[in-house]
Amino acid sequence: MNAETMNVIQMKRSRIKELWEQELGGFKTETSAMTPHMYNELNREFLDLLMNHVSLGDISEDGTLERFFDKVLRANMPLEYITQGLQTYRRIILEVVLEEDLNKDVAIEIYREVDYWMDPILNKVVTNSSRLWERTVSIQKSALLELSAPLIPVFQHISVMPLIGTIDTERAKLIMENLLEGVIQYRSQVVLIDITGVPVVDTMVAHHIIQAADAVRLLGSTCILVGIRPEIAQTIVSLGIDLSLFPTRSTLQKGMEQALDITNQQIVKEK
């Protein structure tokens, strides 16, 4: 920005602050647990950073704004808060500058200059927020995958793998890896795959389950498929899927009873 425009902005700082607080004070969000005091402090910090960048006459390369934007997003504030704040600041600057007695050519030049100054900041916000979102989604996806297919030992030589949600190719690969590693680690003679929480069993899902059962059998263990609801059984039959190669049971309890028989174990009630 030219020196004249920057001087006007600095002289009108109080006016800018007043208009800023009016505009941003009405911004409401249900996604953040911030108190009104915390929100007001955030607004003040936001305005101070923007005013400091005006005094520098350009976008600072020290990363201050980027760190602030990251902090805002990590506080669960929506991206709209940042974009609305920047657009509000752009509009307020133009308002206070054009309150001065300026000719048409100067006013047009100021509009262009403010746009030239603000657009790179907006671009950085979008870029940084996209990267943060992608990184967060990637971390969450990895964490969910790690927890989505555990093999749980419940009795000696008996383990259970509860499956919940949709099974795609990537998850099926993880299921297979966890299943085979768990069978060896826990020395499981019987593995119960519980599909009670799987909403849809189509040809692809059934194929992955059959592959898992075959792999378990190659290790010398028995795989029992449990949690087959009536609608799932009907789907399996209508698709012509052959599950005759390994035992199936309607509930985990019935599957556990068979697993105890296979391993020559029984549960005895104490008198």
Rank of each mutant, 00 (worst) to 15 (best):
L98G: 04
A75F: 01
L19I: 10
D48H: 05
K28C: 03
W20F: 07
L79K: 15
L50C: 02
K12L: 06
Y89C: 02
D70Q: 15
M51W: 00
N123A: 14
T127I: 13
D115T: 09
R15V: 12
S60A: 10
E23F: 08
K141P: 01
R74L: 11
M118T: 10
Q140F: 07
D58N: 12
W133Q: 14
S129D: 14
A143L: 12
G25H: 04
N128E: 13
L151P: 00
M118G: 03
Q140N: 14
E134L: 10
E99W: 03
L79N: 15
L147N: 03
P120W: 07
S130R: 15
L151E: 05
L42S: 00
A107V: 12
E95Y: 02
Q22E: 15
K71I: 13
K124V: 15
E99I: 08
P78Q: 09
Q87F: 12
T136S: 12
W20D: 05
E80W: 02
R90S: 02
S138T: 10
H53K: 06
P153C: 10
E113T: 11
L79R: 14
E99F: 01
N128R: 14
G26N: 06
L42A: 02
W117T: 08
V125Q: 09
L98Q: 08
I92A: 04
S138W: 01
L73G: 07
S130Y: 11
E45G: 08
N76R: 11
N40A: 13
G63M: 02
G57T: 03
L56F: 04
V114E: 10
S55P: 00
K104W: 09
D115E: 10
E109H: 10
G26I: 05
E45S: 14
W20R: 04
F27E: 06
R13H: 04
F46Y: 04
F27A: 03
E113L: 02
L94G: 06
Y116T: 14
R90D: 01
L144R: 13
L94N: 09
D101I: 13
I152G: 05
D48V: 08
G25I: 12
A149L: 09
P36C: 02
L94S: 07
E134T: 11
Y116N: 11
G26M: 04
L94T: 11
D62P: 00
Q84V: 14
R131N: 12
L102M: 03
I59Y: 03
